[in-house]
Nucleic acid binder design. Sequence first.
DNA 1: TCCTATGTTGTATG
DNA 2: ACATACAACATAGG
Length: 270
Amino acid sequence: MPELAEVDYFRKRWDVGLNHDIQSVQIHERARVFRDCDTEALKAHLIGSSLQSSMSAGKQMVFRTSKQAWLGVHLGMTGELCVQSSEQAPRKSDHLVLSLGSLMLVFSDPRMFGKIDFHQGAQAPEWWSRIPPALISSAFTVEAVAAFLNRRARSSIKSVLLMQDRFPGIGNWMADEILWRAAIHPRSLAGQLTAAQVRCLHRECRWVARRALETIGTTMEDPPATWLFPHRWREGGVCPRSRTALVRETIGGRTSCWSPGRQRLSVALR
DNA sequence: TCCTATGTTGTATG
DNA sequence: ACATACAACATAGG
């Protein structure tokens, strides 16, 4: 489920627990989500400390603790953060539960493609500091996008937009939304877009990121019918701009949705 | 039973 | 070394 805006929405859910003492921690030690995490150290550290701040960058989020540590959360495909009353019985997929008196902060992830990271120290860990500039920041430049597209010249633009080392937070639906707005066919080769298309793509990356953070990132409500989003999974879905039937096909290993009415293919990839 | 799923990574190949 | 493509990870739901 989670891309840029959904991640930020889930991050803020835990903010009600900031500055509350963590009284106990329940961990599914064997769960794959802890594959890069020392669960003993995590548990020992968290009990008796508190979460003091939260941030998200791309699909990664981090909570800083009162004792100089960094708790990283990646939601993978099916991860979610929620707050429950301590009366609630834990579910099978609740792999990390922080008990704060009457409240519990819960990380759940049935498929366990998500991940918990833990780092102690004043300096940010590498998994946090290496995340490239946010799509909505001024450091996300059209020049950087153009250079990246040239390095991935023989790949479809759809698969390139999914690469987190240049487009942090873009996932399957955002990539399709951006390409739809930019009127670029998802199967176009990254190296064969015109300069004007690259400028447009850069602009639409920023527009979709900003608007998604304002809407989904705040309320988790679906974007309006003027977006591709509410039409993309519907059988018989219709493009809200060109009124032509939407098409779904696997590109770069992911189901992609586009509008043949506005997204023309200039160079085919097969 | 078979197919799908808003993600990332390791590995094989060119 | 670099770029590219895809299987694998693990589970639930239609």
